[in-house]
């Protein structure tokens, strides 16, 4: 349990001249849920997106420092972003299913990787949708468009889509902020089911959500990591005054 799967050392990120991350040191053990919290613009989403190199898409971003996944530097010159993202999947704030059927959405990664065996694909679809706790709701419409689903169902299909390529780490960027409370709690239940098998890192604005599901919580502010600890310590007995102020709603 205590093996470190992902380590970040002295990570700086600049948007042009502006320093958005000011030297982050943060490590993640294999398995379990870590929540990243903090006020808007504190850098938590930016940090999350450095972990599978999604910031590569944004022009003018400079990154220094090292992030190692199982000892391999993600930002090494010969690092393969495609392979990295197969190991480190991501779920976004807005549910973003492809305009295909539910079935095709879930197996898309595998199919493009060349998997053709129908039985195997069927099995993966069922397993992934079950893991994402949406199987019972969609099993009779697998070949209908994923766009016809509700937002909450779409988001769980997106989670299933990531699970289908069997990553080690799943990054979630405020996955419930566009959803209603019922859908949110279904997503939370889904994540709690997955925490024994995957390393989950979730950015959330919802402090209750962090306290409900996260084993560990990291508090970010102004591009710096203020504090990281067991979730109950962060909420009950934070070491830093800034954390306490934020938790108790005095700002942010």
């Amino acid at each position: 349990m205590s093996e470190e799967i992902l380590t970040t050392q002295d990570l700086h990120l600049y948007y042009g001249e502006k320093e958005a991350l000011k030297g982050i040191n943060l490590n993640f053990d294999a398995k379990g849920i870590t929540a990243l919290i903090g006020p808007s613009g504190c850098g938590k989403s930016t940090y999350l997106r450095t972990l599978n190199r999604m910031n590569d898409l944004i022009p003018n971003v400079t990154i220094t420092g090292t992030i190692k996944f199982k000892g391999e530097n993600l930002y090494a010159p010969n690092a393969d972003t495609v392979e990295i993202r197969k190991e480190i999947g991501m779920v976004f704030q807005q549910p973003n299913p492809f305009p295909f059927s539910i079935y095709d959405n879930v197996i898309y990664g595998l199919r493009i990787a060349g998997e053709k065996d129908k039985e195997k694909l069927d099995a993966v679809v069922e397993k992934s949708l079950r893991q994402a706790a949406v199987w019972d709701e969609v099993k009779d419409h697998l070949h209908e468009s994923a766009l016809a689903l509700s937002g909450g169902q779409q988001q769980r299909v997106c989670i299933a889509r990531v699970l289908a390529v069997s990553p080690e780490i799943i990054l979630l960027d405020e996955p419930t902020s566009a959803l209603d409370p019922v859908s949110s709690s279904q997503i939370e239940a889904t994540l709690l089911n997955l925490r024994h098998d995957y390393t989950i890192i979730i950015v959330t604005h919802n402090l209750q959500q962090a306290s409900r599901i996260a084993d560990r919580t990291a508090f970010f502010m102004n591009g710096e990591l203020v504090e990281v600890d067991q979730t109950k310590n962060i909420f009950m007995n934070p070491a830093k005054k800034q954390t306490e102020d934020y938790i108790s709603g005095r700002f942010g």
Binding site: M54, L57, K86, G89, M90, V91, Y108
Partner: peptide, 21 residues
């Protein structure tokens, strides 16, 4: 949407696969 591109890339699709598929 940009999210569609991010969704493709985040699944481990290459840029070309994301565009064409």
């Amino acid at each position: 949407d940009l999210e569609q591109r991010e969704g493709g890339l985040a699944l481990g699709l290459s840029r070309w696969e994301t565009v064409t598929r």
